[in-house]
């Protein structure tokens, strides 16, 4: 019988939405989908995980070492419980990308990264070459270890009533890796980029960090999250955590507005699943217009204030 174990992504306070998307991806695979939470104090997160529809059981591994736990600390704990499961998944966020290969190597099995479609319990589709090709791959017999491309799966519904079990794991934990600090984005008052239904993103065309304020202002008006191209992040206009693309965040909002973004293939890889893409750029030949549902050629510095004004 197939049994999926999902490693919960959380910040110590709340479960990340990526976990519920990973549950959706797991639903065709097994009758049993369990979530494990590694945490120092986990009641709230456990309750959130138990409420995800389709989850059979929530395991809570409470241990002080699991505060700000890094992969070197989590992987041996996952290895210790892995043999009960046919599949081990985490979201393909920086959390899962860092952790899951370490788990796969300990288990001695290859990993399927960035699963975008589940064809069968061991056949999956995944994007390669920045999403310019899709490969259908078959995992060998044995445990299937993988990461889930969260933009490809909706968040599983709420209303679930999974049981919550405390679980103790005794394994040697290395001390060679120590968490020092996390400098967060510092914009908690904006919607989360990976969860937002609307995203307003700016690129090199903004010209400066100061000018990026017009993006923030429009985003506030529309209740949208703020994204950016690599060029804008490299130029120091906005912190790295806003970067959208092959090596940044892969997102699937209802509305994506690309403002002053030319649309390099690496950027397009991050927005392909957006329902509606709007492009505003002064260069009519910018590649972003090839993927945009609605294009408007013109100077963003006149267009954006006009939009804001019209929105009242």
């Amino acid at each position: 019988m197939n049994k999926v174990l999902i490693i919960a992504e959380h910040d110590g306070k709340n479960l990340n939405i990526s976990t519920a998307r990973t549950v959706t991806a797991s639903q065709g695979i097994a009758e049993s989908v369990e979530i494990v939470i590694f945490v120092d104090d986990g009641n709230i997160i456990a309750t959130q995980a138990a409420a995800i529809a389709g989850v059979t059981k929530v395991l809570v591994v409470e241990n002080p070492i699991n505060k700000h736990a890094v992969s070197a600390i989590l992987a041996p704990q996952i290895e210790a419980i892995a043999n009960e499961y046919s599949h081990i998944f985490a979201p393909n966020t920086t959390f899962g990308k860092d952790l899951i290969p370490r788990v796969a190597a300990l288990l001695g099995v290859p990993q399927v990264s960035n699963i975008m479609r589940v064809e069968s319990p061991n056949i999956f589709d995944r994007p390669v070459y920045a999403g310019n090709a899709i490969v259908t791959v078959e995992a060998p017999n044995g445990a299937v270890v993988g990461t889930i491309r969260t933009a490809s799966f909706p968040e599983a519904a709420g209303g679930g009533l999974a049981s919550i079990e405390q679980c103790e794991i005794f394994v040697d934990i290395p001390t060679h890796t120590r968490f020092i600090s996390l400098a967060a984005n510092g914009d908690d008052d904006h919607p989360d980029l990976q969860a937002a239904s609307k995203v307003i993103a700016g690129g090199r065309g903004l010209g400066s960090q100061e000018n990026f304020n017009i993006i923030y202002s429009l985003a506030d008006k529309m209740g949208a999250a703020v994204g950016a191209s690599r060029a804008a992040v490299d130029a120091g206009f906005i912190p790295n955590s806003h970067q959208v693309g092959q090596t940044g965040k892969i997102i699937a909002p209802e509305l994506y507005m690309a403002i002053g973004i030319s649309g390099a293939i690496q950027h397009l890889a991050g927005i392909k699943d957006a329902r509606t893409i709007v492009a505003i750029n002064k260069d009519a030949d910018a590649p972003i217009f090839e993927v945009a549902d609605i294009g408007l050629v013109g100077d963003l510095f006149t267009i954006i204030p006009e939009i804001e004004k019209a929105l009242g």
Partner: peptide, 12 residues
């Protein structure tokens, strides 16, 4: 560079 921002680790 992680999704939440910039994380600093000390590694031996």
């Amino acid at each position: 560079e992680i999704d939440a921002g910039l994380e600093t680790l000390a590694i031996d």
